[in-house]
Design a binder for these strands. Structure first.
Lengths: 240, 240
DNA sequence: GCCTAGGTCCCGTCT
DNA sequence: AGACGGGGCCTAGGC
């Protein structure tokens, strides 16, 4: 099913890639190339052997010798192929990104294949799962906590969980499924302030940050603002 | 130079990949596989044809049919290869990430190559370039602005540019080289508050957000807090 | 070592 | 369409 060329000429490789893309196949090119990105930010890749993947959604990624992220990429397309001066693959990534041009002086291997089925994924352990867990067992936040609404809207944005504590005090809960940083504290602070403005003037409002952990600076920020931290991890995570 | 196998058995592919990695080569495997990630977050990829890249830094990325990001990945290693039940590539990504296992029921193409030179990049148009531009022409921020220090430290973190406005008022400048969101406004707010606490009690402190543009909500946030927005783009960007 | 900030962030979701 | 927030974000730099 997959087709492969070894050491093709630029013309052959260009025709091969164009035909494969027209058939909805993924194209893998391995070879020596240079790349330039022109746009808001300018990036140039010196000559080196890399892997280019041209996916059926017209995403182009260029992977180098290290790292999870591609050395260069573009999506938004369309993708154009040219064989005038070596094989050149180009794609315009739109206004915010820029235009990518990859020029191969030698293609070692060109492969085209049908990426059938390569999409279905199942995920767990996200913030949504943490929310489900807290709604199922509100005492995890603190004993007596009662959720009343999720995504309750305020002028500062939607509150993850809105409810009352054991004393009946209005409480905003902000969820993070990873260790929380200062941004989470100020977001919670904005929600609490918005609730105080929204409710009648002398209303007491509490804020609780629910996350597996917080950074030291965030813990101080919370304390300074009279906010509470409650350690809860998403279900199924190893640290329980 | 690059070596290629077509439709190898699991044993052959495993030996091929192991040898290539030992030689510091990059390995590309194209074939039908399933993948599982176990850790804080659980992710499962159903059977599909994908590209696996095993890089010389022991990063493993698995690319599917769409998107810039890999469907699965691991780094931190070490990477292990096993041929007991189809070709299996595994890598432990550490505590926060999890362990990745990719099992191929069929390898269509296995390629190994030396990713020589695939590292050098030059970049421009970043926040650093915007800073250079502002330091070179401070009037871009506003007429009469005088930079005094960069990365000036405060309890809330380092201020991009610290200086005085035309009236001599202490001013904190926060730079963003892309359209700024609410996080930039609250970051600037934290810096201004920290400066007010640090300097003598009745000190006036201004805050200016310098970016090519801001979102509407951010513009309101800034106005509510008495902060200023000054539109400046990084040098060489298309919108000047 | 942890933590913070930047990114062509990407990507989903909602207005 | 733009906009906002989450992410196994990744990656570089600072302490």
């Amino acid at each position: 099913m997959p087709r492969t060329l070894t050491d093709p000429t630029a013309d052959r490789a260009a025709a091969f890639a164009t035909d494969a893309a027209a058939d909805g196949l993924t194209v893998s090119l391995i070879g020596s190339c240079v790349a330039t990105l022109t746009g808001r930010s300018q990036r140039d890749l010196a000559a080196g052997v890399r892997t280019l993947l041209w996916k059926p959604d017209d995403t182009v990624v260029v992977h180098g010798a290290s790292g999870r992220d591609p050395d260069a990429w573009a999506s938004g397309g369309p993708v154009t192929v040219d064989a005038a001066d070596g094989l050149t693959v180009a794609c315009d990534g739109g206004h915010t990104a820029g235009a990518l041009r990859v020029r191969f002086d030698a293609v070692h291997t060109a492969t085209a294949f049908d990426a059938a089925g390569a999409d279905a994924t199942t995920v767990s352990g996200t913030e949504a799962a943490l929310k489900d867990r807290v709604l199922d067992t509100p005492d995890l936040v603190e004993p007596g906590f009662q959720p009343l609404a999720t995504e309750r809207d305020t002028p500062a944005g939607p509150i993850d969980i809105y409810g009352r504590d054991a004393d009946g005090t209005v409480t905003a809960v902000e969820l993070k499924n990873v260790r929380a940083g200062p941004a989470a504290a100020s977001q919670l602070q904005r929600y609490v302030a918005a609730l105080r403005r929204t409710l009648h003037a002398d209303a007491t409002v509490r804020g609780i940050l629910v996350a597996p952990a917080v950074t030291a600076k965030t813990r101080r920020l919370l304390a300074d603002r009279g906010l509470t931290f409650s350690p809860v991890s998403p279900p199924g995570s190893r640290d329980r």
